[in-house]
């Protein structure tokens, strides 16, 4: 008799769980539609046959590939392929430097102890709160002093020099890696240098991916710094600045669909990168590391 009584709530619970699961899936579907909607609209516009910026309908009247072809062949007024290469070069270099700087700084603040540590952390925290482009005029003059304005090198420097300021996220991550691992290695005779390269970094894939990714994106989306630095030098533009120029008021109706095509092309490397690195975000890495 008693056994049945135990069985009933268990059955009840699975029903509830199933209902929750169903609701979860519905909610996720609705949310995904909302979030993907602008992306979908961007794609549609990039294939739209008729030009014009403001349409009164959602689905295009005709589809064509011409916008993409124009983007790469019609380089007279807007040289998109060149901008794309510029951005790629700047993004690769600045994301490598930025990631190194961020990892180095956050490892130091997470694991090493020295007198200047806390003051430095506080100062950096405060520095990071100043709006970056507030000092753009000064940065411009500093770079001019080094003869680096209107060059891609200058742009890489601008994007990566302040990297140390964004140490907190990686430091928060390093703090969750068990310290026992470091201590074990130190007992085995490893120097701090070895611990950093051989133990901490290999365990930090998620945060490395995150840092690489976010710093790789920066040059693609920024246009304030690049507009100050490359003023009037169209062959050193990055895609953000170039594309934004396409939809200035005078050219928006003629170039809007081409702008969308350009935006899609810019997004493609970023999307691929994302799908490749997605798995690093998933799956805990420190679970059980000390036990083994």
């Amino acid at each position: 008799m008693k056994k049945q009584n135990i069985g009933t709530p268990a059955y009840h619970l699975t029903f509830r769980t199933r209902a929750f699961n169903f609701i979860s899936h519905v909610a996720l579907t609705v949310l995904s539609v909302i979030w993907l909607f602008p992306v979908f609209w961007l794609l549609l516009n990039s294939f739209r046959e008729e030009s014009g910026a403001y349409t009164s309908y959602f689905l295009p009247k005709g589809l064509t590939f011409q916008n993409y072809i124009n983007l790469f062949t019609n380089t007279g007024l807007y040289d998109f392929p060149l901008w794309f290469m510029n951005t790629l070069i700047v993004a690769i270099f600045s994301c490598l430097i930025t990631t190194m700087f961020v990892l180095m700084t956050s490892y130091v603040f997470s694991r090493l102890r020295f007198p200047a540590r806390r003051p430095m952390m506080n100062i950096m925290l405060v520095l990071g709160m100043f709006p970056g482009f507030m000092s753009m005029v000064a940065v411009y003059h500093v770079l001019k002093l080094m003869n680096l304005t209107q060059t891609l090198t200058g742009l890489v420097i601008v994007y990566s020099a302040g990297a140390a300021l964004s140490y907190y996220i990686a430091k928060g991550f390093f703090d969750t890696i068990p310290r026992a691992l470091d201590e074990a290695a130190t007992i085995d005779g490893a120097s701090k240098n070895t611990v950093f390269w051989r133990i901490t970094l290999p365990m930090s894939r998620p945060i490395i991916t995150f840092t690489l990714l976010s710093s790789f994106i920066a040059p693609w989306v920024d246009f304030i710094f690049v507009s100050v630095l490359m003023k009037g030098k169209a062959d050193k533009f990055t895609v953000a600045l170039g594309l934004r120029q396409m939809i200035e008021r005078e050219t928006v109706s003629a170039y809007f669909t081409q702008f969308c095509a350009g935006a899609v092309v810019v997004s493609i490397p970023l999307v691929i990168l994302f799908l490749m690195t997605q798995k690093h975000y998933v799956g805990g890495i420190t679970g059980g590391a000390t036990k083994g």
């Binding site: 700087f101 180095m104 700084t105 490892y107 130091v108 090493l112 020295f114 540590r117 430095m120 950096m124 520095l127 100043f130 507030m134 000092s135 753009m136 005029v137 000064a138 940065v139 500093v142 420097i157 601008v158 990566s160 020099a161 302040g162 990297a163 140390a164 300021l165 120097s191 701090k192 240098n193 950093f196």
Partner: peptide, 25 residues
């Protein structure tokens, strides 16, 4: 490489900060 490892790791990032963030600021 050991006791003063923070000097090695922090030099470049700090230099970048000083020249392109602190000075302009």
């Amino acid at each position: 490489w050991n006791d003063k490892y923070h000097l090695v790791l922090l030099t470049l990032p700090t230099l970048g900060l000083l020249i392109l963030t602190v000075l302009p600021l």
